[in-house]
Write a protein that binds this DNA or RNA. Sequence first.
DNA 1: AATAATTGTAAATAATACTTGACATTTGTA
DNA 2: TACAAATGTCAAGTATTATTTACAATTATT
Lengths: 66, 66
Amino acid sequence: MKNKIRDLRSTKGWTQEDLAKAIGVSRQTINAIEKGKFDPSLPTAFRIANLFEETIEGIFEYREED
Amino acid sequence: MKNKIRDLRSTKGWTQEDLAKAIGVSRQTINAIEKGKFDPSLPTAFRIANLFEETIEGIFEYREED
DNA sequence: AATAATTGTAAATAATACTTGACATTTGTA
DNA sequence: TACAAATGTCAAGTATTATTTACAATTATT
């Protein structure tokens, strides 16, 4: 699942670790999500969206390709 | 996490099993999600939202409580 | 060039979404 | 009232996968 986290984050001038601490996960988790290695849980997705004052749909692009 | 799935579903006249088959999970999973026993994965949340032509935020209400 | 800061990634772990099955309760219907 | 359909739930197990830990590689800074 693609997402705009990297853009949003660097626009704010934040490091992966900054973002990680802000939402309560490890830095590597942020990195993995940014690179699309796996999807965040729904709560984590909400925290990310809320932090950037965005909607989940505005950040994550879901494609039905299983 | 609260959600409006039950309302949306019964408005359509669908049974839990109908919805379950439509998004590819078991009936008990739908029941558990409806009752807030656990949160769906992000992909499952997207499938539910898409099926009802709604946004995730329009269906799921996230609260920052622990 | 050297050091620090940031990012990338593999491997292991933890968490939990989800299933299956079974049975009990409720709600609808003949 | 009786039967069927739908929902609730619970236990237990599976498996998927989100997340962590540790280390390598890259990028920036001096």
